[in-house]
Simulated assay, not measured.
Amino acid sequence: MQPTSLYERLGGIYSIATVVDDFIDRIMVDDRLNANPRVNEAHHRVLPPGFKYLVTEMVGEATGGPQRYTGRAMEDSHRDMLITGAEWAAFMDDLHRTLDKFEVPQQERYELLAIVEDLRDAIVTEPAS
């Protein structure tokens, strides 16, 4: 018997899309993130439905679903935002709040958070001092 993929254990694309919808709504208005003028500008330039679509694709693929992420590389889309470690922590706090809201089970939460943490180095670019 094959182990069930994280994608299946999360409930498939409809459940993933529901969680992504809440999460993106949460980060788009987070003052801790929008205090960075480059992030704030991106949050006003990128339309939420398209952003949600791409994140849903990404999570679907990363968790073992049939989706294929069609967006830009994380380095390319975040390089100029100069995202700090503190902003990453706020982003992860928002993710935890969303996972709490939907009562994502501990094992699935752990696996999903590990996937997201693997993106940290591609996203966080502390400004030079």
Rank of each mutant, 00 (worst) to 15 (best):
T4D: 11
A128D: 08
L10W: 09
M81L: 15
L95S: 05
G11W: 06
P127Y: 04
T4V: 15
I24R: 07
S15P: 02
E111M: 12
G85L: 04
R38H: 14
R72D: 05
A42V: 14
S129M: 03
L119T: 15
Y110K: 05
D31P: 05
E87M: 09
Q2M: 13
V59P: 12
F23M: 12
N36M: 12
D100Y: 02
D30P: 14
N34L: 15
T4M: 12
A42C: 10
Q107E: 06
D100G: 10
M92D: 14
M92P: 14
E87G: 12
D21L: 01
L6K: 05
D31Y: 07
A35Q: 15
E61G: 07
S5P: 13
R38A: 13
G64I: 05
D80A: 15
D100Q: 11
E108Y: 02
E103P: 00
A17P: 00
E111V: 03
H78F: 14
F102E: 04
V19D: 07
I115A: 01
T70P: 07
L54A: 14
A86N: 03
L112Y: 05
A114T: 11
F102A: 01
W88M: 06
L10M: 13
F91E: 09
V124I: 04
F91Y: 13
L6F: 13
E8S: 11
K101F: 08
P48T: 15
G65A: 01
W88A: 04
G71F: 12
V20M: 11
D80E: 02
V59H: 00
K52V: 11
T18W: 06
F102V: 01
T56F: 10
A35P: 11
E117T: 01
H44E: 10
T56R: 08
L119A: 14
E75Q: 13
T70E: 09
I27Y: 05
A89N: 13
L119P: 05
Y14W: 05
E61D: 11
R120K: 15
V104Q: 06
V46T: 15
E117R: 01
F102L: 06
N34P: 13
V59Y: 07
R68F: 07
L119H: 03
M74T: 07
V39Q: 08
I123Q: 00
D30R: 08
A89M: 13
Y110F: 03
Y110R: 03
H96N: 15
G71N: 04
D94H: 03
T125H: 13
V116T: 05
A122Y: 03
D118E: 14
L95Q: 04
R72Q: 04
A122Q: 09
A17W: 04
A128T: 05
I123E: 02
Y69R: 00
P105V: 04
N34E: 10
A128V: 01
V124E: 08
T98G: 09
V116S: 01
H44M: 12
D76Y: 02
F91S: 05
T98A: 12
